[in-house]
Computed example of a mutant assay.
Amino acid sequence: MKQTTIAKPVELVGIGLHKGSPVRLRLEPLEADSGIVFVRKDVGVSIPLKPENVVDTQMATVIGKDGYVISTIEHLLSAIYAYGIDNLRIIVDADEVPVMDGSSASFCLLLDEAETVEQDAPKRIMRIKKEVTIKEGDKYVKLMPSNDLRYHFTIRFKHPVISEQHFDLDFSRETYKAEIARARTFGFLHEVQYLRSKGLALGGSLENAVVLDEKKVLNPEGLRYSNEFVRHKILDAIGDMSLIGINFIGEYEAFAGSHDLNHKLTLELLKDPANYEVVEIATAEAKAMAKAYA
């Protein structure tokens, strides 16, 4: 199994969630062993996808360099990770990735259009060897050894529509597209009003998020899945964990996980080389582990 990139450049234009302005997003192929690199075209700054380049995790995952940032990267990264793409240049002309419909479905369509191609270099994956956990109060995220890639997520909200939800994902590109990609980000009306008072979420609307008041979903079309909320949390987690910089094999589990906890988990994982090993997809064992990315 070889490393992959996209066959041709593709682009789209969408609205930025926080500023509400149009953002042009362009994806370009990159040579083998380059990884994922973000580029702020408007200021000429490149930002490699690395945990140490994360500068904020409060409302979204934000990377930065030399004082310039790119926000809300997790939905796009979630799709890129699901497609097993190793090398890619991501170009934006503003400080955030367009939100599209609040899910990663549009990015999956863009990657389908771009198509993936193999490169002349072996694919590498990270195998989780030891359990790694980040816990804050009753909230936690953790990675565990496994020869498969699975995500387990539980959320609990004091809201009649959400309450407690749990979802298990046996990861593959196809299960991701069918069960996760269409799940939209969500928020509460009082939070949206507060954010707008601070000059944030100016591009947010019922077109790109599930919004709830105290009792119900405000979107006239309703939910795409009865448990769309926890499915979106898995979508976010997949994007956040891509900051490791390499596809991994193991099990991810979370209760009330967040961008911040996910970021801390990637740092804790990489802090000790005994937590993992990086293997080339050459041996029969490694090929079996990598079936999720085939």
Rank of each mutant, 00 (worst) to 15 (best):
8 K>W: 05
11 E>Y: 13
16 G>R: 00
17 L>G: 01
27 L>Q: 05
33 D>C: 14
34 S>C: 05
38 F>I: 03
44 G>K: 00
44 G>S: 05
48 P>I: 13
49 L>M: 08
51 P>D: 04
53 N>I: 10
54 V>I: 07
62 V>E: 07
63 I>H: 12
66 D>W: 02
68 Y>S: 09
71 S>M: 10
72 T>C: 06
78 S>R: 13
81 Y>I: 05
82 A>T: 01
83 Y>I: 10
87 N>W: 10
90 I>S: 09
96 E>M: 02
96 E>F: 03
98 P>F: 00
105 A>M: 15
106 S>E: 15
112 D>E: 11
112 D>P: 07
113 E>V: 09
122 P>M: 11
124 R>T: 14
125 I>P: 04
126 M>C: 09
135 K>H: 04
138 D>K: 10
141 V>N: 06
146 S>Q: 07
147 N>A: 13
155 I>S: 10
167 F>E: 09
167 F>R: 03
171 F>E: 12
173 R>I: 02
176 Y>K: 07
176 Y>D: 11
181 A>K: 15
182 R>T: 15
183 A>R: 00
191 E>I: 09
200 L>V: 14
201 A>D: 07
208 N>I: 01
209 A>H: 04
213 D>I: 11
223 L>V: 03
225 Y>I: 01
225 Y>P: 06
226 S>P: 13
228 E>M: 04
235 L>N: 05
245 G>T: 05
245 G>Y: 02
246 I>H: 08
257 G>M: 02
257 G>E: 02
264 K>I: 06
269 L>W: 00
272 D>T: 03
280 E>S: 11
286 A>C: 04
294 A>R: 14
